[in-house]
Design a protein around this nucleic acid. Structure first.
Length: 646
RNA sequence: GCCGAUGUAGCUCAGAGGUAGAGCGUUUCCUUGGUAAGGAAGAGGCCACGGGUUCAAUUCCCGUCAUCGGCUCCA
């Protein structure tokens, strides 16, 4: 007998060789039906793999990510089996489970899949699932495995196996399909009740641009048909929040083929929104001791040779602009820091003057690959809410903490809760990708980690994600479709001060090198507005709404009175318009609701007589009548509460 | 940049080898209305652009551009 310890610490005796599914059955039939995988001493196993020794276990159902992973991983095998049956000779790369479903990378040779082929594969998968094939785990020798795939002509699997260090590899067999796989899998296909293949894409073999591009098929499966419907419904709903759709509908921004791809045009309402955000941050920064500066949109090539960006990103910049007579070359500026370094150099600083915090909403241009462009989140011209802090090494951590404070203040004011912090460190195995001394890297990374800890900010630490000149702390968010984007970033830089030979005079009357912090809370105005739009589905809070109030006269008889209300509100700088179209009130209300304007003021005979307005709030309805003055104060207070309380 | 898909009115989308349609929006007129759609009439399209096949192409084929889903990249 062996001792099995459950998550609640209770212990039960079982015969040696008991399996997860049998343990589940011993608890209840219902659990046995819904369990998908088991953790044995922290390692996820197949449910039918015998447990030979005492173990701590945990059973995973659909509600656990380990359970879903087993299901989706198995589904990937079923999909591969279906594809092999329908398209013999297909070679297979890798087919893992992912956050939402699974994919398989395949090479169909000369054949190519189109979206119309997906239902056929789905159908075949359903047939296979109905046959209720078990997944059988097998250990075979590496040699044998290699021969199997060589015979199959599958160079991808051969490559994968060749790199494995073990003498034995595990295979999983389900029906006629056999796949190299570490597992774990479902005992058989029966839990898979709903299948949907979602999309096709190209994907480089092993993520390497220089290697062959395979076809990636994405899919998802569920234990219940209803869950699939819900999931598809959720996708539909998410699409409605897409900033590209809302941006068009609400007239926030547009693109023009004639202007050029990836170059956003901010329409009046979007510009209003952006300006409100900029004004807000400028106020915050002024209080925090930042000094506004303004620099030009281009810079001499030499500036970027000094900074090191030319070497690294010269090809990703827009083509240089040359002057006809002097033969100089200028670049559209891809970042603001070199300009700011030159500003720092315009005078001498004592150690008492530091830190110096130079801030600029600087528009930069980068030649992003065409396939990368995406709405406002990835563009070729964008404005950073940029600032560079030049400080003494002993001030680094304190300054870093102050920046974290600003980022958090800003995100709180905008009700941004679902962000992740990520500390990106260098990759110790690829030091050649970075500039600067190992010692400075160490110092910078230490400062970031410590500052983050001191702020109690939970951050994932990822090696190899640092910028080429320094480590960073990024704030990541997800968009409506669950894609990750980086917003704010704080980066420590010992290198630019070195390259630009920046100095301050220390208390010892000697020259010293300052440290630089690059930071942008929003990241870029474009990306931030995009994410903000999706975050609130276009229902911007009152203080940000491009149009805050709309006056709806019952008929044109009340036009004069509406104008009186408008003038009063305008005096308070409340962004107000009148809907004086020849439409019924119901229609005007409907249109104001769909345009997501926070407040509607209905004015007619009653209101004119009593000098009031009838207030209706977006998505909430009638709030009753109010004097114009009271309403204005209400709006002013509400705006204040958004900005001040934080 | 790469793989795949898409491109028809301002927006959302039908359509077919023989000179183009709907809904919403917009314009004009009627209507002067009370908390999510009043009525009528009209305007609006080189069917993304450039080639080719054909008696005939917006429709079929090729290329370009743009957009979308991924991959790679992201100072």
């Amino acid at each position: 007998m062996i001792r099995i310890t459950f998550p609640d610490k209770s212990v039960k005796q079982f015969p040696e060789g008991i399996t997860g599914i049998e343990i589940a059955k011993s608890i209840s039939e219902g659990l046995a039906r819904s369990v998908l995988s088991i953790s044995v001493n922290g390692e996820v196993w197949d449910l039918n793999r015998p447990i030979e020794r005492d173990a701590v276990i945990k059973l995973h159902t659909w509600d656990a990510k380990e359970g879903r992973a087993a299901m989706w991983h198995s589904s990937a095998h079923i999909m591969a089996a279906a594809i092999e049956a329908l398209y013999p000779g297909t070679k297979f790369g890798i087919g893992p489970d992912i956050e939402d479903g699974f994919y398989y990378d395949i090479d169909l040779g000369d054949h190519s899949l189109s979206p119309e082929d997906l239902p056929g594969i789905e159908k075949k998968m359903q047939d296979l699932v109905r046959e209720k094939h078990p997944f059988i785990r097998k250990e075979i020798s590496k040699q044998e495995a290699l021969e199997y795939y060589k015979k199959k002509n599958d160079e991808y699997k051969v490559e994968l196996i060749s790199e494995l260090e073990d003498d034995y590899v595990t295979f999983y067999e389900s029906g006629d399909f056999v796949d190299l796989c570490r597992g774990p899998h479902l005992p058989d296909t029966s839990p898979i009740k709903a299948i949907k293949l979602l999309s096709l894409a190209g994907a480089y073999w092993r993520g390497d641009e220089s290697r062959k591009q395979m076809t990636r098929v994405y899919g998802i499966t569920f234990p219940k048909k209803k869950q699939l419907d819900e999931y598809l419904n959720l996708l539909e709903e998410a699409k409605k929040r897409d900033h590209r759709k809302i941006g068009r509908e609400m007239e926030l921004f547009a693109f023009s083929k004639t202007v050029g791809q990836g170059l956003p045009l901010w329409l009046p309402k979007g510009a209003q929104l952006r300006e409100t955000l900029e004004t807000f941050l400028k106020k915050v920064q002024l209080k925090a001791g930042y000094l506004p500066v303004i620099t030009p949109h281009i810079g001499n090539k030499n500036l970027y040779v000094i900074s090191g960006h030319y070497d690294k990103y010269g090809d990703d910049s827009f083509r240089p602009i040359s002057t006809p007579s002097e033969g100089e070359e200028f670049f559209l500026k891809p970042m603001n820091c070199p300009h700011h370094c030159e500003i720092f150099k315009t005078r001498q600083y004592s150690y008492k003057d530091l830190p110096v915090r130079l801030a600029e909403f600087g528009t930069v241009y980068r030649y992003e690959q065409s396939g990368e462009l995406h709405g406002l989140t990835r563009v070729r011209g964008f404005t950073q809410d940029d600032a560079h802090i030049f400080c003494r090494p002993d001030q680094l951590k304190e300054e870093f903490i102050k920046v974290i404070d600003i980022v958090q203040l800003v995100y709180r004011a905008l009700d941004f809760k679902n962000y992740n912090a990520q500390i990106s460190l260098h990759d110790p195995d690829n030091m050649k990708n970075y500039i600067g001394s190992a010692e400075n890297w160490k110092k910078a990374e230490k400062a970031i980690v410590e500052a983050t800890e001191e702020k109690g900010l939970k951050a994932d630490i990822v090696a190899g994600e640092a910028a080429f000149y320094g480590p960073k702390l990024d704030f990541m968010v997800r968009d409506a479709l669950n894609r990750h984007w980086q917003l704010g970033t704080i980066q420590v830089d010992y290198n630019l001060p070195e390259r630009f030979d920046l100095e301050f005079v220390g208390s010892d009357n000697q020259k010293h090198r300052p440290v630089m912090i690059h930071r942008t809370p929003f990241g870029s105005m474009e990306r931030f507005v995009a994410v903000l739009t999706e975050h609130c589905a276009g229902n911007f809070p009152l203080w940000l709404a491009p149009q805050q109030v709309i006056i709806l006269p019952i008929s044109d008889k009340y036009q004069k009175y509406a104008e009186k209300v408008l003038n009063l509100l305008n005096n308070y700088e409340i962004r107000t318009l009148i809907d004086n179209r020849n439409e019924k009130t119901g229609k005007k209300i409907r249109d104001a609701e769909t345009s997501k304007i926070p407040y509607m003021l209905i004015v007619g005979e009653k209101e004119e007589a009593a000098d009031t307005v009838s207030v209706r709030k977006h998505r909430e309805g009638d709030l009753g009548s109010s004097s114009i003055e009271n309403f204005a104060q209400k709006v002013i207070n509400e705006v204040k509460s958004f900005i001040d309380t934080k």
